[in-house]
Design a protein around this nucleic acid. Structure first.
Lengths: 349, 349
DNA sequence: ATTAGCACTCCAAACAATCGAGTGCTAACA
DNA sequence: TGTTAGCACTCGATTGTTTGGAGTGCTAAT
């Protein structure tokens, strides 16, 4: 794929993209001829541009307009022309991720930081539960007919639920129950907690098996509960900074809706996790219609995956116009990703 | 204030507002002359309109255009012309508020329901903590150097936090601590938990007072923690349905930003809670610049307060264009408010 | 007191004219 | 042979002009 472009075409393509990034306007041959490093007449450039267009790297919105990069052009830029500064380890000190113990709070901070730094709408998904392991379970009597069930998962993700019961459990039984729950559930992943296991535990429970079963089922539910599988967003209104996304009300509305619809967003961002067409530093760039989501042709999406514990992954991402400062975005994401990884590893010890 | 408008002026004002609600266009005298119930010539109407304008109930965008209601006009409409059907008690069955035990989930459902029903951006604030009372506190060992602190407040609002400790607490001390915490904190409001109290508890703690103090402080922090004071929003993108709010990108962006900025939103929505200029059914309508917030001149805000327990209040609200279906909104809010009140009262028993 | 009639205003939409940035092509040039 | 100057041409954007119509205020008749 490289060989279809000679040195000079690459130079010009780069100049076009750089200029377009700055102005957002189609760029013409004369502009390029004045671009630093290019010393060719506009006529020559026109010829080269004509070739580049034929090869599909740039397009003309209409005759007698300048050229803008096509998705293929952007792709080439991202793959070959973008030199990302490796993030200094020390560099991450400006991250200022407060040592909060709650994952939710941490992620909220991260998404805000991401949005503020990049100036693009940002998304952070909480790590998927499916491979996360139970660390601690506890039932407590909080009222006569209410039990509080608290579950701590890896990464100190805390889930809780109030369970209504018909008759109160006395302290002795509660203690037994807690023992039973912890011995059986500790270290298990969500998917390993199934009816079969509950059945097994019920038998172990002995005497008050009935209550046990009901409670157990709710505990399992609580752990499986994906309501907490939050997606955090921030800076959605940044799209108004980019006319190509917000001039068209229809489109602006679509994008904002997508950002508001957590379920869809979750699903979408998840898809990118295991995809292995990753770019350097584990950061994935999707340009325009490479993203198969509807109404997203004019957007690029950059995502990165962070890891909480072995296999427990979450994603951070931004959505912006195709004319995006990819370098800054990739560098920022890379920094934040590693900051996050570090913060999580720390809290994991 | 009533007496400055005679029967006929009211009739015409009403016709203007009704028509304007439908069309969104300035309405002229001829249109009104054909309005059901009005049998006057356009010329007569013009005279009346001229008076209404002088009195400030309607305005003319420019000479030779029709009239639109002013804030004062809307206010009159809302105060005197709007007959709200009292919400049938049974009527609320369509509410379908699932009996979720977690307040957060309930509120998320409510805000979505509100947005879906009204088609306006909706906001629901979690009840203010300040007057809420501690119901149950528990510390547990979750790892060698980590304690889990769980606090259940009125309305089953659960807060939790991981506390890092230098040395583990043995079971006996943990038990003592839990006793201490519950005896001292139970039934207290957030504001009653202060340094003085902590000091008192420290003395009671006896031997391992040091750890106790540190932990206690964190517990107090956890309870006071207002991070959980969530505001839920839904349907923000509905503003695109109303050209008067979204045609101007600047304004659209402002409104959406406000909806995204939870802190500001929280503060704003709180202000309306204790204000006693309430309308029928405890629902408050703010029209245009009655709301002193910047960039909200073209919006109306309708809020209602729900009550969790004695004095523990939260707010639900919608933001829409001044040309809003006030009747439907007020009725919907009224229904949802009472549905919510009922659901909460139930979970409180 | 009401209304028909009329002159007047002013926005919005349609249309026309102009400008200029940019192109492709050709012919001259190093 | 690759580069460049020059030129005719295209086409969107901008600006100005015209026109139509909805609406008003005022006056005079009922």
């Amino acid at each position: 794929m490289d060989d279809e472009l000679d040195e000079r075409k690459i130079l010009i393509l780069n100049a076009i993209i750089q200029t377009y990034f700055e102005t957002g306007e189609p760029v013409g041959s004369r502009t390029i001829s004045k671009f630093p490093g290019v010393s060719l007449s506009s006529a020559t450039i026109r010829n080269e541009m004509s070739d580049l267009e034929e090869l599909g790297y740039i397009v003309q919105p209409h005759t007698s307009a300048g050229r803008i990069p096509s998705d293929k052009g952007y792709r080439f830029y991202v793959d070959h022309l973008l030199d990302v500064k490796e993030s200094d380890a020390d560099d991450a000190k400006d991250l200022l991720l407060k040592k909060t113990e709650k994952l939710e709070e941490l992620l909220k901070q991260v998404v805000q930081l991401l949005a503020k730094t990049t100036q693009y709408p940002s998304v952070v998904s909480a790590p998927s539960m499916s491979t996360n392991r139970v660390k601690f379970v506890q039932l407590s009597n909080v009222a006569d007919d209410q039990l509080l069930c608290v579950v701590v998962m890896g990464g100190n993700l805390v889930k809780n639920r109030i369970i209504e019961v018909d008759e109160p459990l006395d302290n002795e039984n509660l203690l037994k129950m807690n023992m039973l729950l912890n011995t059986n559930l500790n270290g298990l992943t969500v998917s390993e907690i199934n009816l079969e296991l509950i059945q097994k535990m019920k038998i172990q429970a002995g005497e008050n098996a009935e209550i046990v079963e009901a409670v157990m089922r709710t505990v399992a539910e609580t752990i499986n509960d994906s309501d907490d599988l939050e997606v955090y967003t921030s800076g959605a209104t940044n799209i108004f900074k980019y006319p190509e996304l917000s001039d068209n009300k229809q489109q602006a509305s679509e994008i904002l809706s997508k950002l508001e619809n957590k379920e869809e967003l979750q699903e979408f961002i998840r898809e990118t996790e295991d995809d292995e067409e990753l770019k350097k530093n584990g950061i994935r760039v999707m340009i325009g219609s490479e993203n198969e989501m509807a109404n997203m042709e004019d957007c690029s999406v950059v995502t990165a995956t962070y890891e909480l514990a072995d296999g427990v992954k979450g994603t951070i991402g931004i959505i912006g116009p195709k004319r995006m400062d990819y370098r800054k975005v990739v560098e920022t994401m890379s920094r934040i990703k590693s900051g996050l990884d570090r913060a999580l590893r720390h809290s994991e010890d």
